[in-house]
């Protein structure tokens, strides 16, 4: 090997290092979707909270969502009933699980009619719930991102959201995902949800869906997803306390995600 070759190699490495250091995108910090959303939001209107509420009041006979609403009323441009955790905004507490002080916040954008979302839910999310959410290591947020190509996913999202607000999120999500092949053929979302609930619970859920009470929350999830940008599902975004953001596109196995979560949890 002669000296000229070594010199050329060193020169090449040097040039590449310089090119990489000068690469402009490397200096820009990643923005979380919610931060982007905040930047693109219109300035909040001053004045009483009632003037900015887009969520219709639930019928008097129905169970109410609001313990959290009172807390977040100070943020007038956000949909009612949402909270913020570690810079992640517009979280519907009924669709979020775990401790808010968890070292990792994980958002999952999914569509009830998407097969990969079903696989992620049944093989990965459930284990994450058992081993990381229940132990306070991960705060898990389910975001609805019904894709336009799926005829019934928006309806399924509405029923799931309503069920979540009467405390039956897990039961209905399980029913919808596990029976996905059946209801996507027949369109019988209502029957699938009804099978997972008691008649009284189903009545409450149906009333909430009919009143379109939670449509703004679904719409907000979709808007947030579009700003990520989520162009397919499932799409997960992991946030740490130190502000790092890690998007994960598509299905990921539990074992591999577990190793990554362990790293995130360990760094605190």
């Amino acid at each position: 090997m002669n000296r000229r070759r070594i010199l050329v190699a060193l020169l090449g490495v040097g040039l590449i290092v310089i090119a990489v250091l000068l690469f402009p995108s490397l200096d820009k910090p990643l923005e979380t979707p919610t931060q982007q959303a905040e930047q693109t939001q219109l300035a909040p209107e001053p004045g009483p909270v009632e003037t900015v509420s887009t969520t219709p009041a639930p019928p008097a006979a129905l169970p109410v969502i609001p313990p959290v609403i009172a807390v977040v009323k100070a943020a007038p441009t956000r949909p009612q009933g949402t909270v913020s955790v570690d810079g992640v905004n517009d979280i519907d507490p009924a669709k979020a699980f775990g401790s808010k002080s968890a070292p990792v916040v994980m958002e999952i954008y999914s569509d009830f009619q998407c097969p990969a979302c079903k696989t992620l839910f049944t093989s990965t999310t459930q284990k994450i719930m058992d081993n990381y959410v229940n132990s306070g290591k991960v705060y898990l947020i389910h975001r609805d991102f019904p894709l336009p190509m799926h005829a019934y996913s928006r309806v399924a999202a509405s029923y799931s959201r309503a069920a979540a607000h009467i405390g039956k999120c897990d039961e209905v999500e399980q029913a919808l995902f596990r029976n996905q092949e059946k209801w996507e053929m027949t369109g019988d979302v209502v029957g699938t949800v009804a099978a997972a609930l008691s008649p009284a619970e189903m009545k409450k859920v149906q009333a909430l869906v009919d009143a379109k009470t939670f449509e703004p929350l679904i719409e907000k999830d979709k808007q947030l997803g579009q700003m990520v940008p989520v162009n397919q599902t499932p799409y997960s975004v992991l946030h740490t306390k130190s502000g790092q953001t890690f998007p994960v596109v598509g299905f990921v196995s539990y074992e591999v995600l577990k190793s990554f979560l362990d790293q995130l949890v360990a760094q605190k």
């Binding site: 490397l26 910090p29 994960v248 591999v256 790293q263």
Partner: peptide
């Protein structure tokens, strides 16, 4: 680099585990 991590052994480890997610996908 793509994740804007500060250079350290810990960030290299984290970056490799993150890359594993992409390989797994």
């Amino acid at each position: 680099w793509g994740l804007h991590l500060h250079p350290s052994i810990a960030s290299t480890k984290l970056s490799l585990f993150y890359f594993a997610l992409q390989v797994d996908s």
